[in-house]
Design a protein around this nucleic acid. Structure first.
Length: 491
RNA sequence: CGGGGUAUAGCGCAGUCCGGUUAGCGCAUCUGGUUUGGGACCAGAGGGCCGCAGGUUCGAAUCCUGCUACCCCGACCA
């Protein structure tokens, strides 16, 4: 089986790259660092979008759209922000091309230089806050709860499909509030929403927590993140929510009159998840046979494959299959009937396994005669034959069962690979030899954090919200610490 | 940006050292037939500015010069 994929055990990163391409999620494009998201991959992204969008709207947010280009001057208004992003920006300097004077090809018209260069957005805080300035005068205009679905560009040195691409798709929420407390509440609400989504829709357990000051978003006062553990023992940041304080309000002069008639700067948050979640899906659940998509996320939840000789058999089986498809769809499932005559059943079985379709139904002449159907689960790779009368209710309950099993498996993996260490030797041993999450005491200084990173490539992923107070000594410096923080090597 | 590598059919590669008729192989594609309960088989066919631009030569995928792109390893990052 899976002779078309590199084995995970052989080379994890090669396996990942192979899988993304073979499962038709995405491929490299003609443009350095930019991917083409293929229809099947995009269908999964659309499922992510649809569910998140529903959740955003259910919590009072609305969508809007802001420009791709940001005037250079906007970008430098917030000091920490420009510091954090300046190095990786694409810049538009000209607005016209012309035929090359030597007659060969096209050149940038030197006469068409922009007075002020435009930055291709790496994130939209600056253009949005510049706009909010005109939208907000009074406490009656608040809160402003806006989300945008967009593409952004960060000129990364090294890229990998989904995990780090120069252009990526994401959503970015940008909210404005009258009080600090309300903004912090929003920041928390969103990180909870993300955690709920990633856990209960994507089947990936996450740790919620605070980023250490050095890992914070450029311009944020506090960054909350959810961290997930991938199958190779590396951590992946799956979503972030930032409390921006009044930094952007001050930088863009966004003031409002409060209930007492006094002028004040508004309080801000921003938050986002990206197509990186697609990478998380692969890295968290896939196996040597291909993708494993949790049912709630799957663009195709059930595939029906006919097994037949000749068109008479196909006709008979198709009638059964189409009736089954209709009944499953009535029960709320997304079903594909693959009656292509150009591929054999065995090919289709392998192909839908590669694509991670949660449930496969096969109907052959035997099943047609006996009133049965073969049902196969992607998560366990088990098969059984059941009566056609029971199939709809069975498949419906299987959806939850498969989701729970995938989440349970990922959670168990994380438990097994979370190590509580109390000494530097232990820390090194786990990071170098075992991988996974490391819960260890840290003295709270950026110097120690930096040293640990330089020595081990491990970083503080989060200071977990639920990390209990506990007296201890920093694994590196030996200085006192009051709680454990989560270390790991990360994507 | 430093170190290493690669560029030949849609994909993966051989050929390049040592220049020489018509540039091969596997997969994929197309046609016909036989097949169909776990990635079918046989027969045939199509597909190439050998990364780009110069140069050397009677002759260049092969030698020389310049350029470009991509990949891997580092420093940077969601």
């Amino acid at each position: 089986m899976a002779k078309f994929l590199t084995n995970r055990e052989e080379s994890f990163s090669q396996w990942y790259n192979d899988l993304v391409i073979k499962a038709d999620l995405a491929e490299n494009s003609a443009v350095r660092g930019c991917m083409v998201i293929k229809p099947y991959g995009y269908a999964i992204w659309e499922r992510i979008q649809a569910e998140l969008d529903r959740k955003f709207k259910a919590t009072g947010h609305v969508n809007a759209y802001f420009p791709l280009f940001i005037p250079k001057s906007f970008f430098s208004r917030e000091a920490a922000h420009v510091e954090g992003f300046a190095k990786e920006c694409a810049v538009v300097t000209h607005y016209r091309l012309k035929h090359s004077p030597d007659g060969k090809g096209i050149v940038v018209d030197p006469d068409a230089r922009l007075e002020e260069e435009l930055i291709v957005r790496p994130t939209s805080e600056t253009i949005i806050w510049n706009t909010y300035k005109d939208w907000i005068q009074s406490y009656r205009d608040l809160p402003l709860l806006i989300n945008q679905w967009a593409n952004v560009v960060r000129w990364e040195m090294r890229t990998r499909l989904f995990l780090r691409t120069a252009e990526f798709l994401w959503q970015e929420g940008h909210t404005a509030h009258a009080t600090k407390e309300e903004a912090i509440e929003e920041t928390t609400k969103i990180i909870d929403l993300y955690a709920d989504f990633v856990t209960n829709f994507m089947g990936i357990p996450v740790i919620k927590g605070y980023k250490s000051p050095s890992e914070r978003f450029a311009g944020a006062e506090d960054t909350f993140a959810i961290e997930a553990l991938m199958q190779d023992g590396k951590a992946l940041q799956a979503g972030t929510s930032h409390f921006l304080g009044q930094n952007f309000a001050k930088a863009f002069d966004v003031k409002f009159t409060n209930e007492k008639g006094k002028l004040d700067y508004v309080w801000a948050t921003s938050w986002g998840v990206s197509t990186r979640l697609m990478g998380a899906l692969v890295l968290a659940h896939a196996d040597n046979n291909g993708l494993v998509i949790p049912p709630r996320l799957a663009p195709i939840q059930v595939v029906i494959i006919p097994i037949y000789k000749g068109s008479d058999q196909l006709d008979k089986i198709s009638e059964i299959a189409l009736d089954l498809k209709r009944r499953l769809e009535e029960a709320g499932l997304t079903v594909k009937y693959d009656n292509r005559d150009t591929q054999k059943p065995g090919f289709k079985f392998a192909d839908y396994e590669l694509k991670g379709v949660p449930v496969r139904l096969a109907i052959g002449p035997r099943d047609a005669d006996q009133g049965t159907v073969e049902i196969a689960r992607r998560d366990t790779l088990t098969k059984e034959t059941i009566s056609r009368d029971n199939v709809v209710s069975h498949v419906v309950s299987l959806m939850d069962e498969i989701h729970n099993n995938i989440l349970r498996k990922a959670t168990a993996f994380r438990e097994e690979n979370t190590h509580y260490v109390n000494s530097w030797d232990e820390f090194l041993d786990v990071i170098e030899n075992k991988g996974g999450f490391v819960m260890a005491h840290w003295d709270g200084t950026p110097e120690t954090e930096e040293q640990i990173k330089n020595l081990t490539k491990a970083t503080i992923r989060v200071i977990p919200f639920d990390s209990p107070e506990e007296q201890g000594k920093c694994v590196y410096s030996g200085n006192p610490s009051v709680r454990r923080v989560l270390f790991a090597r990360a994507y």
